[in-house]
Amino acid sequence: MERRSFLRGAVVGTSAAAFGFTLWQGAASAAPAQPGAGPYGALGAADANGIRLPAGFTSRVIARSGQKVGSTSYTWHNAPDGGACFADGTGWIYVSNSEINPSGGASAVRFDSSGTVTGAYRILSNTRQNCAGGRTPWNTWLSCEEVSLGYVYEADPYGVNAAVQRPAMGRFKHEAAAADPVRRVVYLTEDETNGCLYRFVPAAWGSLSAGTLQVLVAGSATSGSFTWANVPDPDGSPTVTRDQVSGAKRFNGGEGCHYANDTVWFTTKGDNRLWQLNLASNTYELAYDDSLVTGGSAPLTGVDNVTGSASGDLFVAEDGGTMDICVITPDDVVAPFLRITGQSGSEICGPAFSPDGRRLYFSSQRGTSGSSSGGITYEVTGPFRA
């Protein structure tokens, strides 16, 4: 099963049940993805926000680190990172992590049905270097600490319930999470040069208070079959989780993670790869590798966060590179979708679509200043493919 084997109707976010889109299965085609003409056309000149976009798309700034969000009294956090959107009545909420240590945490911005900012608030505090994470099918945000023996925290994007630490999900250098409502598990990436890919099997679906942490076991090749093995001591002490199971497959700097109908995609920054797990067949392969690009330079480098759209397109953000968000289509074509100019000392984080799929949110973690206090969170609106 290859790249186009994922279901083209993949929903926005990390859960295939997130917003209830209709799904359909594509046919197999060649992998990994290669450069080509993207579905949205060439990038235009930089707009007033310094963002190059295809025709028909516009950008706006939603929040800046250290400044009040819109007309609210809430000050946006430093170093905005991983994010996700949640439906909220006729509007929606965008959640964003803060990758600083100490204090970290996560904040939320609330929008009404027209996209107007109506509120902003804190949903997680007093944690460490919250990098990426993922949403759950029961509408909570999993915020992951990217530190040695870090935790996953489950936070309420609506700001009603207090965040809860989830130690059963393992203590390691967490990066991203993606929920699989079919197998009732959560996949977890590890940001280590010799890291692993994990899945957490809750004792009861809908609760992350108890369960079993497992690690992917496979050969050293870039494709093949895999199995899962239990991690004996998820607390990572005295032996770190990645060294507890013989045959655990190593990945060079696990980053973003996205699930859509029997497929998991996750990125590794150390080798600029996008990996694909075909869960129905228990096989894995490369969906993209910049070193395997033929006929020209690689359009996507510094691979980081990844999300998906209702059309089945994947959107991969760059940490460095040319500060692009690139699109990878079901036809295995990779092309720039947008480019942030004048911010070479930053990285793009937290891409996530609004529930209706018409708006894409993301952040430049260090903005034009190159400092964590210079973060900028954006929204792009336009004719995204349905």
Rank of each mutant, 00 (worst) to 15 (best):
K173N: 14
R52F: 04
S291H: 13
N161I: 06
W24T: 09
R366Q: 12
E255C: 03
S311A: 15
G119V: 03
R184L: 00
L300V: 04
S96E: 12
Y187W: 03
G345K: 03
S237C: 07
G134C: 03
A335F: 04
R359M: 10
M1G: 11
S344M: 11
D262Y: 07
M1K: 08
T283S: 08
G105R: 04
F86E: 15
D180G: 03
F200T: 13
S125H: 15
A37E: 12
Y259P: 00
A28L: 06
F226D: 05
A33W: 02
G105L: 09
E2M: 06
C349Y: 00
D289V: 10
A33Y: 01
G374T: 09
V61A: 09
T90A: 11
F6Q: 06
T127I: 01
V160D: 13
R8I: 10
G170A: 14
Q129Y: 10
P351H: 08
R128M: 10
L124K: 05
L292E: 14
R166G: 00
G66P: 04
L360R: 07
V109N: 11
E190W: 03
Y40K: 04
Y198S: 11
L300H: 02
T189L: 12
G367Y: 06
R250M: 13
G104M: 04
S369W: 05
W138M: 15
N230C: 11
V61M: 07
T368C: 00
G70W: 05
G104D: 05
G66F: 02
V231R: 01
R250C: 11
G13E: 15
R273H: 03
Q34A: 09
Y187V: 02
P351W: 11
F362H: 02
F251I: 13
A386M: 12
D290M: 07
T241G: 02
A204W: 05
D324F: 09
S107R: 08
S207P: 07
L277H: 08
G9H: 03
T227H: 00
S281K: 08
L279I: 08
G374Y: 13
T90L: 02
L7P: 01
A179N: 05
G104V: 07
N139Q: 15
S148C: 00
G133T: 07
V11P: 14
R250W: 09
S96M: 09
S59Y: 08
Y40C: 08
K269P: 10
N278G: 08
A106W: 09
G382H: 05
I348Y: 01
T322L: 12
A79T: 08
N101W: 01
A108D: 09
Y284N: 07
Y259H: 05
S291Y: 11
Y40R: 02
